[in-house]
Simulated scan of single mutants.
Amino acid sequence: MQERQQARNADLVGQALAAAAALGPGPENFMRAAARQLGLTGRGYDRVLRVARTVADLAGAPQITESHLAEALTFRPRDLS
């Protein structure tokens, strides 16, 4: 939310993204495993974090959970080739 970080989630980069989308141990492990399994690049990882932060905001949750990350991952485009 803009009140928290003075910017839209979509505009967060670097340290601002790390601060707004800080993950606890469980969500961090979930995200690392998903990134490894899906072959996410750094850019892809950050995109998922931004979307997960938005999902958590819409749910009224102060912290990102595994379910927010899982939902964010479902929004990734699939390679149809």
Rank of each mutant, 00 (worst) to 15 (best):
E28T: 15
A22W: 02
G24R: 11
R32M: 09
A19N: 09
V13Q: 11
L17C: 04
P27R: 06
D79A: 09
V51L: 12
R8F: 13
V55G: 00
P77G: 02
A10W: 01
R78H: 05
R47I: 05
L17P: 03
T41P: 10
Q2F: 02
D11T: 11
F30L: 01
G42P: 00
A33P: 09
R76L: 13
G39A: 10
A20W: 07
E66W: 00
Y45S: 10
P62G: 14
P77S: 07
P27T: 05
Q2E: 14
G24H: 05
L58I: 11
D57S: 07
R47C: 10
P27Y: 04
L17W: 09
L73A: 06
D46P: 02
G24E: 12
P62S: 15
R53F: 05
R50H: 04
I64N: 07
Q6V: 10
A72N: 10
T54C: 00
G44D: 06
A33K: 15
A72S: 08
T65F: 00
G44I: 09
R32D: 13
R76C: 01
R4K: 14
A56W: 02
E3V: 13
Q2S: 13
P62V: 15
I64Y: 04
A59M: 06
L38A: 10
P62A: 15
S67F: 07
E71M: 05
A59E: 15
M31L: 15
G60F: 04
D57T: 12
I64C: 02
E71Y: 04
A16L: 04
L58H: 11
A52R: 01
L80N: 08
G42I: 00
Q6A: 13
G42L: 08
S81W: 07
G14S: 10
R32P: 06
G39K: 10
